[in-house]
């Protein structure tokens, strides 16, 4: 049995005056001990709902979930003693200092004042927050808040850590810093389940990836396996003007081994090909003959974006736009 095992999770919501939403629609998940598993998918795919079920925040309509042999639905209090959770919004008390926030969490874990204080001091140092430790969180930057929030999830040094979109909204530097922290935790033996809509993040951190769409896992494997499943090489071409899109996709269909798809921005198109160099020169040549101005053209290995595109028919970003949510 896997360290974290979820079977056939179903969770439905009925918004007023709207059809039933199946946030989870028979989701299965296995996470091996000491590894990082990423739940990858667009907003609304069911990532956060999955984490909320596993962290005892919501009860699914049906299905089972077990963490290290403990049934999440039957024994939530025991589960709470072995997990740490950090959400996409930093769940910290604005009016308390960084140190006080961590002390409070330690006391609520019933560690006792002495241990709670000692642990808060350790975490403040570990997260490089010594200068900010005694100021109310209100004045902290987004990255600092996120670090306090993550530190709060680590107070008992839990064997299992849930991170719901840990780097959403962070600047690139803070994101890299957080990735380093997560990697060092995993090397210390922590089991991590993280959700992300950034393919790059899953690629960098995760040992295993479950791609989620519409409340269900639609593919799983390592990043390399997923990329290999999409197969082969690709040619990506970016136009100077959008109006040439039709002419370009006609050319790409002719020389590609599949249908060209829009790769974002309306001017970039990607097509799978059998022989990269040959197809690339053929496409570029045909475009030049027809007087189509190209901004960029090249070969590339499939990315997780391509995986997502192939599996769902849309990119992660497009799915977000469709829901009116900024990626």
């Amino acid at each position: 049995m896997a360290f974290i095992e979820a079977r056939d999770l179903v969770k439905t919501y009925t918004p007023k005056g709207a059809p039933v939403v199946r946030a989870l629609d028979g989701l299965d998940l296995d996470v091996a001990q000491g590894t990082v598993t990423a739940l990858l998918g667009p907003n609304g795919a069911g990532k956060t709902t999955t984490v909320k079920v596993l962290t005892t925040l919501i009860r699914p309509d049906s299905g089972t979930a077990v963490i290290d042999g403990v049934d999440v639905m039957r024994d939530p209090d025991r589960v709470r003693r072995m997990i740490g959770a950090s959400g996409q919004y930093a769940a910290v008390d604005e009016n308390l200092t960084g140190f006080e926030n961590l002390m409070m969490v330690g006391k609520l874990y019933h560690l006792g004042s002495k241990v709670a204080r000692q642990r808060a001091t350790e975490l403040i140092e570990l997260f490089d927050l010594v200068d900010a430790a005694n100021r109310p969180v209100k004045g902290f930057s987004g990255g600092m808040r996120r670090r306090i929030d993550l530190a709060g999830a680590l107070v008992i040094n839990p064997p299992v850590l849930f991170l719901d979109e840990p780097t959403t909204g962070l600047d690139p530097r803070s994101r890299l810093a957080l990735w380093d922290i997560i990697e060092s935790l995993v090397s210390g033996g922590t089991t991590v389940l993280l959700t992300t809509q950034y393919l790059e993040e899953a690629d960098r951190l995760a040992d295993a990836i479950s791609v989620i769409d519409n409340g269900r896992v639609i593919a799983k494997g390592t990043a390399d396996e997923l990329k290999a499943s999409v197969g082969g090489q690709r040619v990506a071409v970016t136009l100077v003007t959008e109006s040439d899109a039709r002419a370009l996709t006609d050319i790409m269909s002719r020389f590609g081994s599949g249908d060209p798809v829009e790769g974002g921005g309306g001017r970039t198109f990607v097509v799978p090909v059998d022989n990269g160099p040959v197809a690339l020169s053929a496409i570029v040549g045909a475009a030049a003959e027809q007087g189509i101005a190209l901004h960029d053209a090249g070969m590339r290995r499939p990315t997780l974006d391509d995986v997502f595109l192939q599996l769902t028919g849309h990119t992660a970003e497009q799915a977000d736009e469709a829901e009116g949510t900024a990626a």
Binding site: T55, T56, I83, A85, V92, L108, Y109, H110, G152
Partner: peptide, 8 residues
């Protein structure tokens, strides 16, 4: 949500 994930 943070409080509710704690054994409190």
């Amino acid at each position: 949500d943070r409080f509710r994930t704690l054994p409190m």
